[in-house]
Design a protein around this nucleic acid. Structure first.
Lengths: 194, 194
DNA sequence: TAAAATGTCGAATGAAGTGGTCGAAAATTT
DNA sequence: AAATTTTCGACCACTTCATTCGACATTTTA
């Protein structure tokens, strides 16, 4: 695939992102995407194997984008506490940014039968646990946290985040989001900080 | 149709509003509406003649809502100048509120062939001209405006509003909207106020 | 520059989805 | 309990959709 074609594929991916975000998987037609991308319907099949393949590519791009953002945010923070906070806040911000597509992957039940969606979800969750895990370990090494089982703690934190997900997804201002996060971690830290 | 059934019809209308707003006419299926309203697909046809009939009912409800709001706003204003301003600002606010459906009626070309959409549009435009007309006449009677041909003036104002419609529709804050309106009328008033 | 490789799309097709009908069952009223 | 209103499953004709195929266009290679 030449450079020029690669770019066209990128365009298709980009418009597919927007259209999937707006209409979801089932209501988006290949022709919708082709029209918006300014290519023939059949040409789509030169770039992608099929409709699901486009959707998968879109999701993967979004996941990558979010994880990139999270990684950067964590790196900027100094203390493990800060890192944890940054992680949560950035995660929620990004989720809201790309919410419409993620909704389809993380919420819509009728998509559950798609194996690859489950896989993406599982992988993604695992990576989040890993991130939390590493932050906790760092905190322990620095003598800031005292935790018997970091893996368990990570899992609990993940649960907490997931529990608050809906509330955060619908919160109007991001100030509320940060307040909530502060509250959550205030409680958490008082339990685990030495 | 009993009272109870009437209420159910209202529910169907309400969810249809939301779904049409989200997906537009063609991407919304009767089953989408039925599912969301919690009734069988066939039952929809007990309440409404067909799909277009639901859409028409939704649009009419929206139009009614907007005009009600505008009427109230105008009544609250004292001077003709104030009334004109109120008219425009309220109109734009409401349009944004119900924007997603109105888009389909006022912008989407592929709907143009629907005679009833054209009719609604025409009626609506005429009613707006009538409102402006009556405000102008009031202003003339009170010796505030000096206009040779109020009908023509109404038409010109309508054109101005329509011209700015897109800009207003996409404006982020409603403050901008009011500033724009003020500017528009400042120019207009200096031309017609005695 | 001719042949090979890469890229593009119109037309066709079968499968799935959709608007709408009908009649029978369920619920409600009389 | 008969009459009426309301609900909906099953069905059909038609449309839409994802995907394929082959032919044409464009670019690369030799």
């Amino acid at each position: 695939m030449s450079n020029k074609t690669e770019i066209k594929k990128e365009i298709v991916l980009k418009v597919a992102q927007d259209i999937f975000a707006k209409y979801g998987l089932s209501k988006t037609t290949i022709e919708d995407i082709a029209k918006a991308a300014g290519v023939g319907k059949s040409s789509i099949y030169y770039y992608f194997k099929n409709k699901d393949d486009i959707f998968r590519a879109v999701i993967e791009a979004q996941v990558k984008y979010v994880q990139e953002k999270i990684r950067n945010a964590i790196n900027e923070a100094q203390t493990p506490q800060e890192k944890l906070k940054k992680f949560v806040v950035t995660r929620m911000r990004c989720f809201r940014e790309v919410a419409h597509i993620f909704e389809h992957v993380f919420k819509n039940e009728y998509l559950q039968h798609y194996a690859y969606v489950q896989k993406i979800r599982k992988d993604y969750d695992q990576q989040e646990v890993d991130i939390i895990n590493s932050i906790l370990k760092e905190g322990i090494e620095q003598g800031i946290f005292k935790i018997q089982d970091p893996n368990l703690a990570s899992f609990v934190i993940m649960l907490g985040i997931k529990g608050l997900e809906y509330e955060w997804a619908t919160a109007e201002d991001s100030q509320k989001l940060e307040q909530d996060t502060d509250k959550l971690f205030e409680i958490l830290f008082y339990g685990i900080v030495k």
